[in-house]
Design a protein around this nucleic acid. Structure first.
Lengths: 104, 104
DNA sequence: CGGGATCCGGTAAGATACTG
DNA sequence: CAGTATCTTACCGGATCCCG
């Protein structure tokens, strides 16, 4: 997400760039409880395709919010977990949840 | 009671549904300072087209976050402002901004 | 099992012209 | 000034097949 906000610089948009993806908040929510394998995330995020899940996970990893640990086994096993950086987002997600709960 | 094992309900995504639009956070940020006319918002969000700005404003209005006040003048004048509901989002936006600032 | 590669359709977004 | 209308383009996401 590019933002050449010469007139109105909005720092919150930087955060949105990290978590604004279509599925990212719910993925982070799933991983906030515990580390999960690819298939486990797939099951817990309804109606997301494997392709899109892969893309979102890659982006989250590139942004340093989650880590990917691959075990050289057969069948393959991959575990995703929040990094410390990603964990620091949890209060923000809780804030968002609380805001919605209070206001609706 | 629904069995939650197979999908994770994440209340934060309800909030994301309101502010997750491509330009919504910036628009809210602009309006958080003061009420603005259409053209003023357009100038402060440089790379947005009038069409898309219109769409985003309509959605924000439909969600009750902003109000639209039209003056029957020539030339026409329309002012957008945060509703009380929209203003209640400001601490969340500040939180998001603070998180990014601290973590980068 | 956890992807990658490819194709394909729907839709969001951009460009432009027009209007009350 | 504050939008519409229309067309075009870009991108997202789904479906399918394949691989280590």
């Amino acid at each position: 997400m590019k933002n050449n906000l010469n007139h109105a610089y909005c720092p919150a948009i930087e955060t949105m760039a990290l978590i604004g993806g279509r599925w990212k908040v719910i993925i982070l929510h799933v991983l906030s409880k515990q580390a999960r394998r690819f298939g486990e995330i797939n099951v817990r995020v309804p109606s997301i395709s494997r392709k899109v899940l892969t893309e979102q996970l890659r982006e989250l990893e590139a942004d340093g919010l989650i880590s990917r640990k691959q075990y050289k086994e057969l069948p393959p096993r991959v575990e995703y977990a929040l990094t410390e950086y990603g964990q620091s987002l949890c209060p923000l997600l809780a804030y968002m949840a609380a805001w919605h709960k209070e206001k609706v």
